[in-house]
Amino acid sequence: MSDSLGSGAPRPPQTTLRHRLAELRGAAAVPRPLDARALAALAANPGCRRRALLDGAGVDKTALASKLGSPAAFGQSQFAFMRGNAFEAKVKADGGRELLRLLGIEEPGAVRVPDLAAAGPQGRAARTALALREATVAREWALLDHPMLALDVAGSPAYLEPDAVVVHPDGRWTVVEIKSFPMIDGSADASKVGAAARQAAVYVLALERVAALTDGASVAHAVLLVCPKDFSNLPAASVVDVRKQLSVTRRQLARLTRIEEIADALPDGVTFDVEGCSAEQLAASVEAVPHAYAPECLSSCELAFHCRERTRLSGAVEALGRSVRGELGGLTTIGEVLAAARGEAGDPDDPTVHAVRRAAALRAEALACR
């Protein structure tokens, strides 16, 4: 029997894409999986082709940023990581008794906890989908501990692992997010809750794909956020509505340029092999991929400091923020803005140029009155 993928037949597109991304990443490099936190950050800046390609190829952006001389200055400390794992273990101990108590279930024996073990992420995702369908058909409580969900992102599969998913007897599926930051007097830090909601929205979106193939199933658009109560280690829960975050995430992920289109537009020789290339080679490869830097990237992307430096060197107005960029219209560099403000360049009939000159005149008048 002849091999359908032999030398005389073209490879399927998905196989070709995987091979291309592996070449970009480096033959010896282990791909970094896309997680919900990375997807939430990607959805917040869908115009950044650089991040879409690097994440899709599984490039270690932390190592890449360090090799470029602009290491990331954020991330979870080892202490915070250990504290988070310890708190999650407490919440899920004894068959998830504490978690089920927060759901109003006093007897864990009444809740099914299916085994989700399988080979590889694809196998685990299939096993999770089967467990969700079985619990929904049986109309029983079920607790899925670290299920695996699949989501297509710009033509490339991403596998996501929420802390837990609860199946209700009425067919509803609820995402559970367990965080180690405190919930004091019934409320937690707004910025941390917002980040958790954006992350949970990615899980909800992935669950909806499974629910669409399951009769009688629905996905709750309110997630259960579990945090330590006050200054203790006692779990407390809050219901967080993620409809807004879900809508934004769905829209932004749909806007992402397909990864194969970005890869096909690259010149020959582009590679992100951190181990096998020099810093100069990597810098040239990174610059070959368009980016969309904004100050918000500093809190969510490992390459943000590198992109900021390049943006500043080029004088691009993006360094001042998205809102400023939107106000300046056709003035794309800080030099153009200053020249327009001084009356040295720009069309006087352009509303943006007129506004910039008016602002400069008001500033000069205010300084003269001091």
Rank of each mutant, 00 (worst) to 15 (best):
D3S: 09
R11G: 04
P13A: 13
T16P: 00
T16A: 15
R20G: 00
A22C: 10
G26L: 11
A28H: 14
A40P: 12
A41K: 01
A41L: 02
A44N: 12
N45E: 14
G47A: 14
R49M: 08
R50I: 00
D55A: 13
L68G: 05
A72M: 05
Q76T: 15
S77Q: 01
F81A: 14
M82E: 12
E88H: 10
D94E: 15
G95T: 11
G95N: 06
R97N: 02
R97P: 02
E98N: 08
L99H: 07
L100Q: 09
P108Q: 08
P114K: 07
A118P: 07
A119Q: 11
A119Y: 04
G120W: 12
G123T: 11
A125L: 12
L130V: 12
E134C: 06
T136F: 03
V137P: 02
L144R: 06
L151C: 06
Y159D: 04
Y159L: 05
Y159G: 03
L160Y: 07
A164K: 03
V167C: 12
H168D: 04
E177C: 01
K179S: 09
G186C: 07
A196C: 06
A197W: 11
A197L: 04
V202E: 08
V202R: 00
L207W: 02
R209M: 04
A212I: 09
D215T: 10
H221D: 12
V223C: 04
L225D: 09
V226R: 03
F231K: 08
S232K: 01
L234E: 15
P235R: 00
S238T: 13
S238G: 12
R243S: 14
Q252M: 00
L253W: 02
A254S: 07
I259V: 15
I262P: 02
A263S: 15
D264A: 15
A265T: 07
G269C: 07
G269L: 04
V270W: 00
F272S: 01
V274Y: 05
G276M: 07
C277Y: 04
C277D: 10
S278C: 02
L282V: 09
S285C: 09
P290M: 05
A294F: 03
L298R: 13
C301E: 14
E302I: 03
R308C: 06
R310N: 11
S314T: 12
A316V: 04
E318P: 02
R322L: 06
V324F: 13
E327H: 10
L328C: 11
L331R: 08
A339Q: 14
A340R: 06
R342C: 11
H354R: 14
R357I: 10
R358W: 09
A360M: 10
A360Y: 09
A361V: 09
A361C: 04
R363M: 09
R370M: 07
